[in-house]
Write a protein that binds this DNA or RNA. Structure first.
Length: 645
RNA sequence: GCCGAUGUAGCUCAGCUGGUCAGAGCAGCUGAUUUGUAAUCAGCAGGCCGGGGGUUCGAAUCCCUUCAUCGGCUCCA
């Protein structure tokens, strides 16, 4: 007999070799129906796997990540199983669970294409297989045997994966006739996989290497109940409605033109208004925080980027240099503001008493992003960074770093941005040739970032190998409407440019010293930031930022004069106001302006005119009752003030 | 850049297997209506069916090519 300890610390005895599913059944059959995986002694395991010693057991229901991942992992195998039946000679890469579902990378063979129109048939076969309640069985064998098995099958991808594994026992899982190299865990059988939806097909390089074969990746999601799937699909639909590309068009914020060129956003008047407001908002705060504002040209001599190292690293993948009529002169569209800022630093002598120097610019940069990468406003070829560079002494670095984190937190809070993550990116110590700079400086910089983040109480994820080529960084990431992660703010340490630009300051010892450079952006790029803002608010921008704040809706033409009086009053207080003068019924005017997401509507007719009032209606909420017009002015001003507090 | 898909009026979309297939709704314009909290009515105007080749007696519809967009992959200073 063995002792099984549960999360509530109770202990029960079972026979050795009992499975966690059997334990769940012994507690209650209802529980057994709801669990999909278990954690045994800290390791997530198959429910069907025998437990042979005293152990602690935690059951995972659907609400737990572990349960969903197990469920989706088995679903991926089910997908593979169906594919193996439907496509003779198909070969398999990897098929993991992901945050919202699963995928399988396959090579259907020369000349065979799996496209979205094939998905329903595959899905149908998966459902049939699931209904057969196929058992999922774990098989363990030596690496050599596993290798032999997959070599006989002729599956070169699996054999490659096995060769990469360390020697020892390898686990495989079989589901019906399909056997896969797999660490697990899995569901005991497929009976619970009731609702399945294959979502899309895409290309994906084998092992993420663009030099290797492009596999066909099939994405899907599955649930134990149809209702859950329906809800999930509905949620995806709703998310699509928040897409900034759609809202940007609807609300006439920005546009793209093939004639101007792909990835080059055009800010329409309303979008430009909002963008400028963000710039003003940030600029005011920067002045409070000891920044100076600078301005630099959109192009720079190619030599500048040779000095900075950007030319060597990115020159081939940039917009190519432009030539002047004078021979031998070459200029590049600037892909970065920092080299220009370095030259601003060098334009005047510096003493340790001046440091830190904090230099900010809303600098527009141009990067030749790959064709397939362009995406609305989040990935463009021309964008404006709220860029700044801090030049400081080495021992000021951490404080500067902390002050920047503080600024990011303040800005995000001001904009009600709570759903962001912070990521520290370090270099890949096993692949140093990807980076420039010496070990000592890298170590120092990485340490300073980690400590600064820690001292600001910032919860961070540390990722190795994601650093910029010149230094480690701390990025602030957010998700868009369809779940993609984007980098907004970033803080980066750079020992490299001060070296390359031979920057210096005079210390208290009257000697020349090298400053440390910190790059930082808070919004990141205005384009991307606006995109994320649109998606997180579904286009319902905060009052202070909204291009139009109030629209006056006269009941009929008779009240246009009064409407204009109200308009003038509001305009005098810088409340951005419009009048809807169309000869439409009030219901129609309300509907149209609701859809335009104008924060407040003022309905005025006979009653309002007679009593010098307005009928206030809030976007998305409805009628808020009658107010004296002056009262409304105060109310709006108060709201704006509150938002920016 | 790579894989797959898509591309019809400003927007959302119909147009099956090639032969009144160039359509609808919204937006726009004109007129009527003068309206009380999410769509008043009528009329008009709008498209070389992304561009270029081809197959065919005949192409929005089939093929090739090119451009752009979408979903991914790779990349992201």
């Amino acid at each position: 007999m063995i002792n099984i300890r549960f999360p509530d610390n109770s202990v029960k005895e079972f026979e050795a070799g009992v499975s966690s599913l059997e334990i769940a059944e012994s507690i209650s059959p209802a529980l057994a129906m709801q669990v999909y995986a278990s954690t045994v002694n800290g390791e997530v395991r198959d429910l069907s796997r025998p437990i042979i010693e005293d152990s602690s057991v935690i059951f995972h229901k659907w609400e737990d990540r572990e349960a969903r991942h197990t469920f989706w992992h088995t679903s991926a195998h089910l997908l593979a199983s169906a594919l193996e039946e439907l496509y003779a000679g198909i070969k398999f890469g990897i098929g993991p669970s992901i945050e919202n579902g699963f995928y399988y990378d396959v090579d259907p063979g020369e000349g065979v294409v799996i496209s979205e129109s094939d998905l329903p048939a595959i899905e149908a076969r998966m459902k049939e297989l699931a209904k057969e309640k196929r058992k999922v069985e774990r098989i363990e064998m030596s690496k050599a045997d596993a290798l032999k098995l997959f070599e006989e099958k002729g599956d070169e991808y699996k054999t490659e994966l096995i060769r990469d594994l360390e020697d020892g026992t390898i686990s495989l899982y079989s589901l019906g006739t399909f056997t896969d190299l797999c660490r697990g865990p899995h569901l005991p059988d497929t009976a619970n996989i009731e609702a399945i939806k294959l979502l899309s097909v895409a290309g994906a390089y084998w092992k993420g290497d663009e030099k290797r074969k492009m596999m066909t990746r099939i994405y899907g999601v599955s649930f134990p109940k149809q209702k859950l799937l329906d809800d999930h699909l509905k949620m995806l639909e709703e998310a699509k409605k928040r897409d900034h590309r759609r809202i940007g068009k609807e609300l006439e914020l920005f546009a793209f033109s093939q004639k101007v060129g792909m990835g080059l956003p055009l800010w329409l008047p309303r979008g430009a208004d909002m963008r400028q407001r963000l710039i003003d908002f940030m600029t005011a705060e920067l002045k409070h925080r000891g920044y100076t504002i600078v301005s630099t040209p959109h192009i720079g001599n190619v030599e500048l980027y040779k000095i900075s190292g950007h030319y060597e690293k990115y020159g081939a993948d940039s917009f190519q240099p432009m030539n002047t009529p004078q021979e031998g002169e070459q200029f590049m569209l600037k892909p970065m503001n920092c080299p220009h800022h370095c030259e601003i630093y060098n334009a005047t002598p510096h003493s340790y008493k001046d440091l830190p120097v904090r230099m900010a610019e809303f600098g527009t940069v141009y990067r030749y992003e790959q064709h397939g990468e362009l995406h609305g406003l989040t990935r463009v070829r021309s964008f404006t960074q709220d860029d700044a560079h801090h030049f400081c002494e080495a021992d000021q670095m951490k404080e500067e770093f902390k002050s920047i984190i503080d600024l990011v937190q303040w800005v995000f809070k001001s904009l009600n941005f709570s759903d962001y993550k912070a990521q520290i990116s370090l270099r890949d110590a096993t692949n140093k040739e990807k980076y420039i700079g010496n070990d000592e400086n890298w170590e120092k910089a990485q340490k300073a970032i980690i400590e600064a983040a820690g001292e600001k109480g910032l919860e961070t994820k540390v990722v190795e190998g994601e650093a910029a080529f010149y230094g480690p960084k701390l990025d602030f990431m957010v998700r868009d409407a369809i779940g993609r992660e984007w980098q907004l703010g970033t803080i980066q340490v750079d020992y490299n440019l001060p070296e390359r630009f031979d920057m210096s300051y005079t210390g208290a010892d009257n000697q020349k010293h090298r400053p440390v450079l910190l790059h930082r952006a808070i919004f990141g790029s205005l384009e991307r930031f606006v995109a994320v803002l649109i998606e997180s608010t579904a286009g319902k921008l905060p009052l202070w930022l909204s291009p139009d704040q109030v629209i006056i809706l006269p009941i009929s033409e008779k009240y246009h004069d009064y409407a204009k009086k109200v308009l003038n009053l509001l305009n005098n207080y810088d409340i951005r106001t419009l009048i809807d003068e169309r000869s439409e019924k009030i219901g129609k005017k309300i509907r149209d302006n609701e859809l335009k997401r104008i924060p407040y509507m003022l309905i005025i007719g006979e009653n309002e005119e007679r009593s010098s009032t307005v009928s206030v209606r809030k976007q998305g909420e409805g009628d808020k009752g009658i107010m004296k017009t002056e009262e409304f002015v105060d109310f709006i001003r108060e709201q704006v003030k509150k938002e920016l507090e």
